[in-house]
Design a protein around this nucleic acid. Sequence first.
DNA 1: GACCAGGTCCTTG
DNA 2: CAAGGACATGGT
Length: 211
Amino acid sequence: MSVYSSVKVRQIVRSLVGHYGEIAWWPGNTDVVMIGAILTQQTRWENVERGLYELKRRGLNTMHSLSSAKKADIEDAIRCTGFFRIKAERLQSLAAHVMESYGSVEQMCPIPTEILRTGLLSVKGIGEETADSILCFGFLRTSFVIDAYTERIVRCAGVKEKRKELKPLFESILPGDQKVYRQTHAHMVEYAKEYCGKKRCSECILVNLNG
DNA sequence: GACCAGGTCCTTG
DNA sequence: CAAGGACATGGT
């Protein structure tokens, strides 16, 4: 990866800390984070919260309960999050993976990050972002999440690396503190929602953050 | 009505 | 590999 990109990303991360400070993000237990990570695929978080509430109301807010739930019941609960049929399927696949490979969410805790990650990626419907979100926010691992927003921001700053390269790039720059991983991802999302439209950034990130 | 949302998978060129 | 479509509801 280029020196330019490293410097740029460092700069962005530092600027965002100054801009936002600490923000609370994705509170909740590991099961809920796992569910939320799937529900939020291509979906606004406000709609995800409603889906999470509906699942909880039906007692379907754990991997254990989801693993034996009827698909139609899951679908009814998460209709408001969009793509509800495919997401219901993904939740069932994830729940099955957890129960069959580990027996429970608890038993996943001592497992090394890379092993968990490989397992998660083997579940149909779980890609890199969803897997890393689960690891970072559900299991508090130092696995940085790259999403469309993060990519948009670094592109805007002139970073050319492909999406695949961004995760190692960020991880080579962030300190060991896991909390920083969560904070930084949260910062990226908040900043992008505020300043970076799909088509174009309204203003350059460096203008906003350093100006 | 058009456009977008904290993706992923599958099919094509 | 890159690009395009499918999946679907809800908000602006």
